[in-house]
Simulated assay, not measured.
Amino acid sequence: MSYTIAGKHIGRIGFGMGGFLHAHRQIPVDDAIATMKAALEAGATFWNAGEIYGTPDYNTLHLLNAYFTRYPHDADKVFISVKGCLDLKTAQLFVDKAGVKRSIDNCLRILDGKCRIDLFEAARGGLDVPIEETVGAIAEYVKAGAVGSIGLSECSAASIRRAVAVHPIAAVEIELSLFATDVFGNGVADACAELGIPLIAYSPLGKGILTGQLRKPEDVPEGDYRRFFPRFQPEALEENVKLVDEVKAVAERKGCTVAQVAIAWVAARGKKLGVPVVPIPGATTVTRVRENTAAAELTDGELKEIDGVLEKAEVKGGRAPFGFWSSTNLELLALFTRLCRHLVPLPGTK
């Protein structure tokens, strides 16, 4: 099965690159390239990258440059989605016209013509900059042929509607998993369905909880950013793994992994919405990317069973400290990123 975004075919499951360059762990270039090659060979042709994953001097765009330098003939086989306009070190958004230009120009410079930016999105919307200005600035690059299409990230339903009035939106990227279903209650999924916009689901494995390998706080590596997240605190994690165990029961009956069932559940949302829902699980090894792309096909009965579990389950802890993923919490995002660099626990966490 494949979908089409901005006129280009992609596989039903994509590939998130952010995990290659976490602050606590950087994957060697050759290992990253091998994993990227495995993703392509497995049909995961939607690659999610960005200048915000890593540092200004070395981020996932540099990995793309390295990959396509080694495999230039693969450039036309992959759909490249790039996220920018946000400095995670300072939590500054650059979503006005000048900021968008600076970000896209920098991305194009790093890629150095090795591959095309098929879709560009600002990582967040700005408080003081209308979405119309941000989208309009990206649209200039689309019209010039430097960028293929425009996406939105972590946006509201209202922002989607305002954005499409300026320029067609090719995709909306949002967190979506068995642990993050807000999109179905806040109008975003409905807006995408109405307007025919595909949903790109990042963190479909709940930042690793749905791999089944993180059952207690000690399972999260030292220095890992997730140690600051509410859902990974001891009391919350103890409750949250109960949901994982319910999914595990389905997986064992099917002879597959918890991760494969979790990804399949996300992908199946597209049948209800009538637009593609493309999970983009991250992976840093060949083994993991092959597991993710071999997601199970869930029957209607199994989907109903999992939905029933969700109706009864109570997910403990927000999906990020203080809800900083929202563009209305940039001051808290700045605090969080500073604390992460110094590995200082956030107030109210353990």
Score class of each variant (00 low, 15 high):
213 Q>G: 14
214 L>H: 12
214 L>I: 15
214 L>A: 09
215 R>D: 02
215 R>V: 08
215 R>W: 04
215 R>C: 01
216 K>G: 09
216 K>W: 12
217 P>A: 06
218 E>F: 11
218 E>T: 09
219 D>W: 08
219 D>M: 02
221 P>D: 11
221 P>G: 13
221 P>C: 09
222 E>N: 12
223 G>Q: 15
223 G>V: 07
224 D>M: 12
225 Y>I: 13
226 R>N: 04
226 R>T: 08
226 R>W: 07
226 R>Y: 04
227 R>E: 13
227 R>Y: 11
227 R>V: 15
228 F>W: 15
228 F>T: 15
228 F>M: 15
228 F>V: 13
229 F>R: 08
230 P>D: 14
230 P>T: 15
230 P>I: 10
230 P>N: 11
230 P>A: 14
231 R>L: 09
231 R>I: 06
232 F>Y: 12
232 F>Q: 07
232 F>S: 09
234 P>Y: 10
234 P>D: 07
235 E>M: 07
235 E>P: 06
235 E>L: 10
235 E>S: 15
236 A>D: 00
236 A>E: 01
236 A>Q: 08
236 A>S: 01
237 L>S: 04
237 L>P: 13
237 L>W: 05
238 E>L: 12
238 E>R: 11
238 E>H: 13
239 E>A: 14
239 E>T: 14
240 N>E: 00
241 V>T: 00
241 V>S: 05
242 K>I: 07
242 K>H: 13
242 K>N: 06
242 K>P: 04
242 K>A: 03
243 L>T: 02
243 L>A: 03
243 L>V: 04
244 V>Y: 00
245 D>F: 08
245 D>A: 12
245 D>L: 03
246 E>T: 12
246 E>W: 06
247 V>G: 02
247 V>T: 02
247 V>I: 04
247 V>H: 00
248 K>H: 11
248 K>Y: 05
249 A>P: 06
249 A>C: 14
249 A>W: 12
250 V>P: 00
251 A>K: 06
251 A>E: 08
252 E>M: 05
252 E>D: 09
252 E>S: 07
253 R>E: 14
253 R>L: 14
254 K>W: 07
254 K>P: 06
254 K>Q: 11
254 K>I: 04
255 G>A: 01
255 G>Y: 03
256 C>F: 04
256 C>R: 01
257 T>Q: 03
257 T>R: 02
257 T>N: 06
258 V>F: 00
259 A>R: 01
259 A>C: 06
260 Q>C: 01
260 Q>H: 05
261 V>W: 03
261 V>E: 05
261 V>K: 05
261 V>L: 04
261 V>M: 08
261 V>A: 09
262 A>V: 03
262 A>L: 07
262 A>K: 00
263 I>F: 00
263 I>A: 02
264 A>T: 13
264 A>N: 13
264 A>C: 15
265 W>Q: 06
265 W>K: 02
265 W>V: 05
265 W>L: 09
266 V>N: 09
266 V>S: 05
266 V>C: 02
266 V>E: 14
267 A>S: 05
267 A>E: 10
268 A>H: 07
269 R>F: 09
269 R>Y: 04
270 G>N: 03
271 K>S: 07
271 K>C: 02
